[in-house]
Amino acid sequence: MRIFAPLVGLLLLSAVSAVAQEQPTVDCQNAVTQADMNICAGQDYDRADAELNKVYKQAVAATQAMDKELGEIDAAYVGANEALKKAQRAWIGYRDGQCELAGFEARGGSMEPMLVSGCLAELTRKRTTELKQLLEPSGN
């Protein structure tokens, strides 16, 4: 009996995990129902977040290189990477709070997830643009 309970739990966890991974197929160009619009807004945010993560990794590498180069001149000049991390942590807090606030326009309603995801996507794209500017050579 003792072996049976964990085995049942593992099977249930596997079944729930498989169902959770299934994403409904939605034509986001022709989304009509609120549920479809919520899914599409979530997918839009996921794409924006993936791009942000890619650019952030590049920004981390760039600030690490900057710190290394400046550190060879004077150790007091090092800190770009830490400043980037500090800014990113602060931005995440701002983004999450601002988008939670955006959801209050339809608090508890079926439209709330779309509003929150739309806000997350918009702010994430703006942050990605900011990080890309960090990667551009000075003087451009």
Rank of each mutant, 00 (worst) to 15 (best):
A65P: 12
C119V: 12
R89E: 07
K132T: 13
Q34E: 10
E105P: 02
E100Y: 01
T63I: 05
I73K: 04
M1E: 11
D96A: 04
S14A: 15
S14F: 10
R127S: 09
A5F: 10
L70T: 06
G97C: 02
L131Y: 00
G108Y: 07
T25H: 08
A80M: 03
A106Y: 11
V26S: 07
A59Q: 02
L12Q: 02
K57W: 00
R127W: 00
Y45S: 03
Q43W: 03
V60C: 06
E112I: 10
R2Y: 13
A62L: 07
A62G: 09
L13A: 14
C99V: 10
E122C: 04
T33K: 00
S138C: 00
L7A: 15
Q23N: 08
T63S: 08
C119K: 02
A75W: 15
A31L: 03
K57Y: 00
A41E: 09
A31N: 03
A35Y: 14
R127T: 06
Q34S: 11
L70Q: 14
D96H: 04
F4D: 15
V16Y: 15
D49C: 01
A61C: 04
S138H: 08
N81S: 11
G103V: 11
N81Q: 13
G103M: 06
S17T: 05
Q21H: 06
L7T: 11
E136K: 10
L52E: 09
V16H: 12
A76I: 15
K126I: 11
P6L: 03
